[in-house]
Write a protein that binds this DNA or RNA. Structure first.
Length: 587
RNA sequence: GACCCCGUAGCUCAGCGGAUAGAGCAAUUGCCUUCUAAGCAAUGGGUCGCAGGUUCAAUUCCUGCCGGGGUCGCCA
């Protein structure tokens, strides 16, 4: 692992310590002024403030010590006391050399020995997946890949919504339509039929109608509530029917996630927490954490110093049914018992922030979270051109399946427009279009900071120019093409060397990946990776425009440049893999 | 009403205590008989919502205001 920033920070910290100043002042960062330096340390300014001393005088002392290190080709003081640093080319080349034969050594071992559980706050059973679930899937998938690559043990859970009111709504709706089905007898008639009475298509029609009926008619809502409570209480026919709903939906959801290239270790749902609920409630009542209030069983979670009143977490409704707060809390018990995680991340829409704040407080207060740090990873919405959450042209919620088809179609159009892949077999062309369409969508989504809302603009996302997924895929394909030709010509590659400013800038960016990976993990921010890989591709393009590799007659120089190209590709591949974006072999 | 997020170039967005505020798109201008020009090089474009405050230093932190989005116990 090569973390230039950590290494340089260690050296600068030692210099501060040697001057009897706090080593924390030695933080080194990439330079804000690339025209002046590669790296900078601003610690002298802060140290001067703390010691009420002259910042330039402190900077002079630190710089004098740094100049003793053979790593630097230049140590300079600028402005009020910035310490500007440049590395020697020899050091940059040395730092790159391990990467050339072990590219995976870029990954920082930040997660070593630590366990992460990733909760995707998944879609609801019996409802089709739509764009609202897109960001959770894309961001969550990127995070699971990133944490795994950085050495964490990761367990990801789709965590389907399968235990709430929507199940009762479906059951009572179906009961109304087909009262003769055995599931509705109040006595246990098991074994129930193995064949589901409904298909996914049936559910997609059934649910909106049930939902609308409940909105319009209080009696229907009451029936749905009752069915929910009875399902949770264990009524055999309802449980059997519910299992059919779950199975039928799960198959459909797995297909949709797979087409997006997203996989989970666990396909659990809220219902999997059910066995833990009775004990949990018993314990929380005994320990006086849970109290009755207005007919419901709640856990008060207000804390001193709250800027506003935080409502309590409701464990049991007046009718005895549980809510998602209950299952979320019980799920923590399950996860602590099963994995004893250090960290649990919830990748869920920002609008659920308050809900998770309540759950986390309840977990902390009652101690049932073990030593796990619970963290809410919120995200903004994908909006239409009108600034409202993205809808179909007809105003309905767009299904994920349709969105992916739309992206692939647009990609196909773009590829054809450019006359790319024209003479490739049709199936390869289709595969490229799919990779480009999905890559465009994922990159557009991930390159925004998580919390920002963004506007869906298919035309912009699928462009091959600018900061887009297709641009990056194409950049990688171009490098592949060069390497393939070189191979055909029998040209050897060697360790990358620095002969020009373009090579120096490219090499520094290659070496910045470890720090970018660590920063992306720490901030749980995929956009850091997007920024990194875009900058890397741009620097490669400059290098590529300036230095013609194949035409280079100096054999050693050509070999070093091939090595640089290969190393750049290796880094782009690694980052795009973390983003969940495929790179075609050719385009 | 309270609380949370957001207001930065024509557009979409970064940056979030430091040196000349960045990128992509759009605009203008060069560069393809040369590794895929989907690129590269260059130019123009900003009182960082408004008003105060803290600091040697504020787009960045604090307060107030204006504008947009969101949330506020028995849905998820």
């Amino acid at each position: 692992m090569i973390s230039l920033l950590s290494d340089l920070t260690a050296i600068a910290s030692a210099a501060f310590a040697a001057e009897n100043l706090a080593p924390e002042f030695g933080v080194v960062q990439f330079s804000d002024r690339p025209d002046l330096a590669q790296f900078q340390c601003n610690g002298a300014l802060a140290a001067a403030k703390a010691a009420k001393a002259n910042p330039r005088a402190i900077a002079e002392k630190i710089a004098a010590r740094l100049k003793e290190s053979p790593l630097f080709s230049d140590v300079a003081i600028a402005g009020p006391g910035f310490i500007n640093l440049k590395l020697t080319d020899a050091h940059i080349e040395n730092a790159m050399s391990p990467l050339a034969y072990a590219p995976d050594s870029v990954f920082p071992d930040t997660g070593k020995g630590r366990q992460l559980v990733l909760d995707f706050g998944g879609p609801n059973v019996a409802k089709p997946m739509h764009v609202g679930h897109l960001r959770s899937a894309i961001i969550g998938d990127c995070l699971q890949r990133l944490y795994r690559a950085n050495g964490w043990k990761v367990v990801s859970d789709a965590h389907l919504g399968d235990w709430g009111l929507q199940m009762g709504q479906l059951i009572s709706e179906l009961e109304l339509r087909q009262p003769k089905l055995p599931y509705f007898e109040s006595v246990d008639l098991s074994p129930y039929p193995e064949q589901s009475p409904v298909t996914m298509e049936d559910l997609e029609i059934l649910y909106p109608q049930a939902s609308a009926a409940c909105k319009a008619d209080p009696a229907r809502l009451e029936a749905a509530r009752l069915a929910t409570a009875e399902l949770q209480a264990g009524r055999p026919g309802y449980r059997a029917l519910w299992r059919h709903f779950f199975k039928v939906s799960e198959a459909g959801l797995q297909r949709e996630y797979a087409s997006l290239g997203v996989n989970f270790d666990l396909w659990k749902g809220e219902s999997d927490a059910d066995p833990f609920i009775p004990d949990m409630i018993e314990r929380l009542k005994n320990d006086r954490f849970a109290v009755m209030d207005q007919g419901a069983l709640i856990v008060p979670v207000a804390e001193d110093g709250d800027a506003k009143e935080i409502p309590p977490l409701i464990l049991l409704k007046t009718d005895g049914a549980v809510l998602y707060g209950t299952t979320d809390l019980a799920t923590i018990i399950d996860r602590v018992r099963e994995y004893n995680p250090d960290l649990i991340l919830y990748v869920v829409d920002q609008r659920q922030h308050l809900h998770f704040e309540q759950v986390f407080r309840a977990a902390r207060k009652t101690g049932l979270g073990g030593h796990a740090h619970l963290e809410f990873i919120g995200f903004g919405t994908m909006n239409g051109a009108d600034g409202k959450p993205f809808k179909t042209r007809e105003g309905g919620v767009m299904k994920l399946f349709d969105l992916l088809a739309m992206m692939t179609g647009e990609a196909e159009k773009r590829i054809a427009e450019q006359g790319l892949a024209a003479e490739y077999p049709a199936d390869e062309r289709a595969a490229i279009a799919k990779a480009v369409g999905i890559g465009a969508l994922k990159f557009a989504d991930l390159s925004n900071p998580r919390l920002s809302n963004y506007v869906f603009d298919i035309e912009r996302f699928t462009r091959f120019e600018g900061k887009t997924g297709p641009y990056l895929q194409y950049a990688a394909v171009r490098i592949k093409s060069i390497l393939r030709r070189a191979h055909e010509e029998g040209f050897e590659a060697a360790a990358p060397r620095i002969h020009s400013e373009h090579e120096r800038q490219l090499a520094l960016q290659i070496l910045a990946l470890t720090d970018a990976l660590a920063a992306a993990e720490e901030k749980r921010a995929p956009n850091v990776l997007c920024d990194y890989v875009f900058e890397l591709s741009q620097r490669f393009s400059r290098f590529y425009a300036e230095h013609h590799i194949m035409r280079e007659t100096d054999v050693e120089l050509r070999a070093a440049r091939l090595g640089m190209a290969a190393l750049t590709l290796a880094m782009i591949e690694r980052v795009l893999r973390l983003l969940g974006i495929e790179i075609p072999e050719r385009m």
